[in-house]
């Protein structure tokens, strides 16, 4: 169900508090310098996965790639095996995923997603290619029909690494019944309709648990401090 525009929260009103700075200060600074509102982009910590990804994107740093491979490839393999992929095939697909990481690292923007989130989307797409043999349409950022926010999100100031940490904790604290459904959907490649059929839970129960889980994750105190109120 859509939300009419009027029901959407006033993003601008909630974010300065959430981000821990005063809206008036920002206004004053922008007025002083008379430059377009440039926000300082937070640089990832030197030894983080995000920094490794940036090093690959900026200077094809092979050492950084090796470190990233050693951390992520065994996890991607594990992720793929959870959906029933045979070990050898999962190994190959994890290699393919890491090759795509190398190829596309210059498109990675640390202010938009944590390294694990970005790599997850690539592994997910490899899994779709393997099993479905059909395309997964995505929105095109250059589409003239693209509707953008009137008020841009202060994405550059969100600390994606702290966000990822908070998300991990929140996931661990999810009630078992909600966590189960989330894992079924992300790991076992099943739609909620398929999960309902399989578990013999009424569709309404499955979907309301998903909604509760999503709400819990998005409204988690720590995440909320990083994200502007979004729902």
């Amino acid at each position: 169900m859509y939300l009419p525009v009027t029901e959407q929260p006033d993003i601008m009103a909630s974010y300065p508090i959430a981000m821990g700075f005063n809206a008036m200060e920002v206004k004053a600074k922008t007025a002083e310098t008379k430059t377009p509102a440039v926000q300082t982009v937070k640089k990832p910590d030197a030894d983080s996965n995000e920094a490794l990804l940036c090093a690959i994107g900026e200077k094809q740093d092979k050492q950084a790639f090796i470190e990233l491979f050693e951390y992520f490839a065994p996890r991607i393999k594990s992720f793929l095996m959870k959906s029933g992929t045979a070990p050898d095939q999962a190994d190959e697909l994890a290699q393919e995923t890491m090759l795509t990481v190398w190829k596309k690292a210059d498109l990675y923007k640390p202010q938009h997603a944590s390294a694990s989130t970005w790599i997850f989307t690539i592994a997910r797409n490899k899994r779709i290619d393997l099993y479905r043999k059909m395309s997964r349409p995505e929105p095109d950022p250059n589409d003239p029909m693209m509707v953008n926010d009137d008020v841009p999100m202060p994405d550059d100031n969100i600390d994606r690494m702290r966000e990822a940490d908070a998300m991990k904790k929140a996931l661990e604290n999810l009630p078992a019944e909600q966590a189960d459904l989330i894992k079924k959907s992300y790991f076992e490649d099943k739609t909620h309709d398929a999960i309902a059929r399989e578990t013999r839970l009424p569709l309404g129960t499955v979907k309301s648990r998903i909604r509760l889980a999503l709400e819990r994750l998005r409204k988690n105190e720590e995440i909320k401090n990083l994200w502007p109120e979004r729902l």
């Binding site: 996890r75 991607i76 989130t117 970005w118 997850f120 997910r124 966000e163 998300m167 991990k168």
Partner: peptide, 24 residues
């Protein structure tokens, strides 16, 4: 946000399974 959930699941709920020795 939902992709960030996927990222966290990949990061901490997928116990690493060793790659083959020649994969890297």
């Amino acid at each position: 946000d939902c992709e960030a959930i996927g990222g966290s699941l990949l990061d901490c709920q997928c116990d690493p399974i060793a790659m083959k020795s020649d994969s890297l």
